[in-house]
């Protein structure tokens, strides 16, 4: 189905990747921890190494929960598929795309 309209109806996405330059949006989700009221979104460079992503963005975010232990996260997934990220891999190398969802359990 598509929109019924009085004229042609074709508009670009208001959040397409090109609007973020060399960066992209990345969603983060701490599975099975209802203390985190929602999943989060960050803007991160595609070339950001995993260790930086953890230290600068994901870990401080997970610290919303006072019991968060940075050594605890595991069972990582990317868009539903299991991954085992290493510190020096960039987000791009990990296969993280614009609006990808990274999740973990802890």
């Amino acid at each position: 189905m598509s929109v019924k309209a009085i004229g042609s109806y074709d508009f670009p996405s208001r959040s397409r990747q090109e609007l973020y330059g060399d960066d992209q949006l990345v969603h983060v989700w701490w599975r099975n921890n209802p203390f985190m009221s929602a999943a989060g979104t960050f803007r991160a460079p595609k070339a950001m190494p995993w260790s930086d992503f953890r230290a600068a963005l994901l870990d401080p975010w997970a610290g919303t929960d006072p019991d968060f232990d940075p050594a605890a996260p595991g069972s990582w997934t990317l868009d539903g598929q299991p991954i085992t990220p290493t510190d020096d891999q960039t987000l791009e190398q990990l296969g993280v795309g614009h609006k990808s969802l990274i999740s973990f359990a802890a």
Binding site: H27, V28, W29, M36, S37, A38, A39, G40, T41, F42, L57, P60, W61, G63, T64, P66, L101
Partner: peptide
């Protein structure tokens, strides 16, 4: 005080945080 340290992922349609 517990505050969310970041911005929420949003639903594309209702625009409510993914909660």
């Amino acid at each position: 005080r517990v505050f969310f340290r970041g911005l929420p992922q949003l639903c594309q349609v209702c625009q409510i945080p993914m909660l």
